[in-house]
């Protein structure tokens, strides 16, 4: 073996060492893949381990007589394209609490009205029974009930389970202020009046109540009381 051959072998060895050193440094110095940015409320799914990680298998051997011009760039070394296997699986962060979503109003509140007399005559006492229902799982606010009484009846009294009421003699409007109607709450109250002398058959006493809430206005059914004569017809002559 000649001296020239010795030098070539030495240079080849050095080059191999340099290339190997550079390859190792590439693996060590490459930053680990940053965690993907996830939207709030999502948890990270662990990345499956790559099934094949191409390992640097060959260092290209220099052909011919290389001129030692410095450390060659390790361009021929295939970069690992797969995600390296995670060495440590971080515990997934606890899911953030869901933002408070307001429950929608599913149904209109209900107001139903009844009257105790289908027929009436002057002097009769009529009792209007009003029922309001909140069928929703959320409360309703600014709740009030109003009832414009017929001029054919005179207001006497009212009975309510809660809230405050008033009767305006000028407008003949009776008003109940409830404030809040709780979820699924059902309230029943009564208004009592007397049929006055203006009530003459065959007229009818009509009455409708109105429920007002922050969600809007709901009208009740209309009750009808027929005014009838005081006596059956006389059908005998002598």
């Amino acid at each position: 073996m000649t001296k020239k051959h010795d030098y070539q072998a030495l240079i080849t060895l050095l080059l191999s060492l340099v290339v190997a050193f550079a390859t190792v440094n590439l693996f060590v110095l490459l930053p680990s893949s940053p965690a993907p940015l996830l939207p709030a409320g999502f948890t990270e799914t662990p990345t499956p381990a790559p099934t094949e990680t191409p390992a640097p298998t060959e260092t290209p051997a220099p052909t011919g007589t290389p001129t030692p011009t410095g450390t060659p760039a390790a361009t021929g070394t295939p970069a690992p394209t797969g995600t390296p296997a995670p060495t440590e699986t971080p515990a997934p962060p606890p899911p953030p609490p869901p933002p408070p979503t307001p429950t929608p109003i599913l149904q209109d509140p209900v107001i139903v009205k009844q009257v105790n007399l289908a027929q009436a005559q002057p002097g009769d006492i009529v009792v209007f029974t009003i029922e309001v229902i909140n069928p929703n799982p959320v409360s309703l606010s600014n709740v009030s009930v109003s009832d414009a009484l017929s001029p054919l009846v005179d207001y006497l009294s009212a009975s309510v389970p809660r809230g405050s009421f008033s009767f305006d003699a000028g407008s003949r409007v009776w008003t109940l202020t409830l404030g809040t109607l709780e979820p699924n709450e059902r309230l029943t109250f009564t208004i009592t009046a007397r049929v006055n002398e203006q009530a003459q058959p065959p007229n009818t006493i009509l009455n409708t109540a109105v429920l007002t809430t922050s969600q809007g206005v709901t009208q009740s059914n209309t009750t009808t009381t027929l005014l009838v004569p005081g006596n059956l017809p006389g059908t005998g002559r002598r």
């Binding site: 027929q119 005559q121 009838v228 005081g230 006596n231 059956l232 017809p233 006389g234």
Partner: peptide, 19 residues
């Protein structure tokens, strides 16, 4: 004679003859 409401029967199949 004043039992007027008694002849208001909520039943359309009925006929009341009165004298």
């Amino acid at each position: 004679p004043n039992q007027v409401k008694s002849v208001y029967r909520r039943d359309g199949r009925l006929l009341l003859l009165l004298t």
